[in-house]
Structure formats: C-alpha cells, structure tokens
C-alpha cells in the first residue's frame, strides 16, 4: 500500500475561494501566543548556546596552546575557569533536561487533563535558558493543546511561527505541525492556506499515522473545494487506509467520500459509504468531524436499523 501520498500534486482552490488577507489572527485567550515573544526567546536561547559553544572551543584551544607551547601549569587559572564553565554548563543542561523530562507527561495530560497540561506548559515556557529544540517542542505541545480545544486560529498561528525556525533535533515534529496547520486552516475556512500546508506535507517525510492523517485532511480539502472526482480517485486504497484510522476518523472519512460520491451521482458507492459511516461513528462524532453529512440521507437505512 502506498501510504506516501495518494496524489503528489494538489490543485489550488478555485477563484471563488480567494484567500482573505484581511482576516485577523484571533488570539483571545488568557495566555495568548505572540510570535514576537517566541522570536525573542529563540534569539536569547541561540545567543547563549553559541556563546557557550564559542567559549568552549576558545578555552580548549587556549589550554592546548599553553600546554604544548608555553608548558603552562594549572596555576594559569584555566582549570578554575573550566570549573566555572562546567558549573554553568551543568545548570543549563539541568534546566533543559528537567523541562525535556516533562514533555511526555504534558503530552499525556493534554488528553486527560488539559488545564493541568496548560499550567505545566506555562511554567515550562517561562524557563530560561532552554535548548532551542526543547523550546520548540514546548510550543508544539501548546499547539496540540489549542487544537484539542478547537482554538484553530491560534493553533495555526503557533504552527506557522514554529515552522519558521530550523527544527534541528526537533525535526520529528515537522510533519505533525504541518498536519495541525492544515487542519486548523480547513476549520478556519482558509482554503488557500490549507492548500499550501498540504503541498508542504507532500515534501515531508511522514510516518504511517501521519500519512493516514494527511489522507484524511486531503480528502476533506478536496471535498470542501469541490474536487469530488479527485477525492474518489483510488477509492479502494483510501478506504483501506481509512480502516487503519481510529473509529471516529474512519467514519468521518467514509462520510466525506459519500458526500463526494453522491455529488458525482455515484449512488451505489455513496450508499455503501454512508452505511459504513453510520456503523462506524455516532451522529455526534460525525456532526463534529464532518457536519456536511446531514445532507446525505442514509439510503436503505431500514436494512441496517433494527
């Protein structure tokens, strides 16, 4: 099964779906995300990191030069300087390690106790100095939290701001950031933005779960923008992929494809997909994930309903 992209080329939205450049980025929460703050934090972290690295190399070179050419002894003070430097490095490492250790806990809490997760994130984000990758991972978790609480405008802002920076050791989160960005823009009805994010996703190495999410988002984009024929291409493969998704997402994917099939007047397929969607997801789940399913009446529902 080819999980790395059902289609490599995505069409942009039609002219009737122009991007609204005047749309403000709504940030209306107690701890609003401001990209400038992230920029300042990243600059400080980077400066400290390069200062540390530069000093380390310079001191090592000086020590080697003194030892080889000047036959210097420890009275030169370099060893004491090393001690000071080692303590500074240990403090820096300890703060970073402590925050990094909290990351899995924060991820778990986002699912079960978002308030506590937000409190932990707020504390962790105030720490300084932090390694760049750890800070970016914290903002990634903040984006997940906002996405879960359906604050899609803020999610998109965070994802976009984080993706500007080289992710370095945190590059594993790139795919997920792009997925959240696509989803948020789709919910905000920013179809141009969603198209751009989806295009970036096609150049990104994704794992199986992320590939499944991308397929779902791409199908949603295609159905929302009216590219029904494209949504129904390689249908068997898409259904096989949908069956690997959690039940609500699987149901939503079926409902989206059913909408596309019905609009293409492929009634047989639409009925089959709609019936499967009904078996896989509750009405509430479908309302939340694919509100348009209301337009698709289940044909032969009496065959399935007791």
């Amino acid at each position: 099964m080819n999980l790395n992209g059902v289609q490599d080329q995505l069409p942009p939205p039609t002219t009737g779906q122009q991007r609204d450049h005047s749309e403000p980025v709504a940030v209306q929460f107690c701890q609003p995300f401001v990209p400038q703050v992230l920029r300042q934090q990243m600059m400080l972290d980077s400066t400290l990191w390069w200062l540390f690295r530069g000093t380390l190399i310079a001191m090592a070179c000086l020590a080697a030069f003194e030892a080889v050419y000047l036959q210097a002894t420890p009275e030169s003070g370099l060893s004491l300087l090393f001690l000071v430097f080692a303590i500074g490095w240990a403090v820096y490492g300890l703060i970073t390690a402590r925050v990094a250790r909290q990351l899995p806990q924060i991820t778990e809490l986002i699912a079960v106790d978002p308030q506590q997760a937000e409190a932990m994130l707020a504390t962790a984000l105030r720490r300084w100095p932090l390694q760049r990758s750890v800070r970016l991972m914290l903002y990634h978790r903040l984006a997940i939290l906002r996405c879960r609480s359906e604050r899609f405008a803020e999610t998109a802002t965070i994802c976009q701001a984080v993706l500007i920076y080289p992710l370095g050791q945190a590059r594993v989160i790139k795919g997920h950031l792009l997925l959240m960005l696509t989803e948020s823009r789709l919910y905000c009805r920013d179809l141009w933005g969603a198209w751009q994010a989806l295009s970036s996703l096609h150049h990104c190495k994704l794992n199986v779960t992320e590939s499944l999410q991308r397929t779902s988002l791409q199908t949603r984009y295609e159905v929302e923008t009216g590219y029904d024929a494209m949504a129904l291409e390689q249908l068997e493969q898409k259904i096989a992929m949908a069956e690997l998704m959690p039940a609500p997402q699987c149901a939503a994917m079926h409902a989206m494809l059913a909408t596309a099939a019905r609009r293409r007047e492929q009634t047989h397929i639409a009925d089959w997909l709609q019936q499967r969607a009904w078996l896989l997801g509750t009405a509430e789940q479908l309302d939340r994930l694919w509100p348009r399913h209301h337009g698709d009446k289940i044909v032969n529902a009496d065959e399935l309903s007791a």
């Binding site: 020590a63 003194e66 030892a67 002894t73 420890p74 370099l78 060893s79 090393f82 001690l83 080692a86």
Partner: peptide, 25 residues
C-alpha cells in the same frame, strides 16, 4: 569522572593537567 579529573587537574602540577579536563569533557 569529570569531577575526578578536575580535582586531579587542580592538584597535579603538570602541563598535561591543563588539557586533561578538556579531554574528559
């Protein structure tokens, strides 16, 4: 190991003691 090497470097009077902590690091 790092602390041990540092202590050695501070107590031993030898040019090599200057570079020893850097090797350890």
């Amino acid at each position: 190991i790092l602390v041990g090497v540092l202590l050695v470097a501070l107590t031993v009077q030898h040019p090599l003691a200057v570079v020893l902590p850097w090797f350890a690091l």
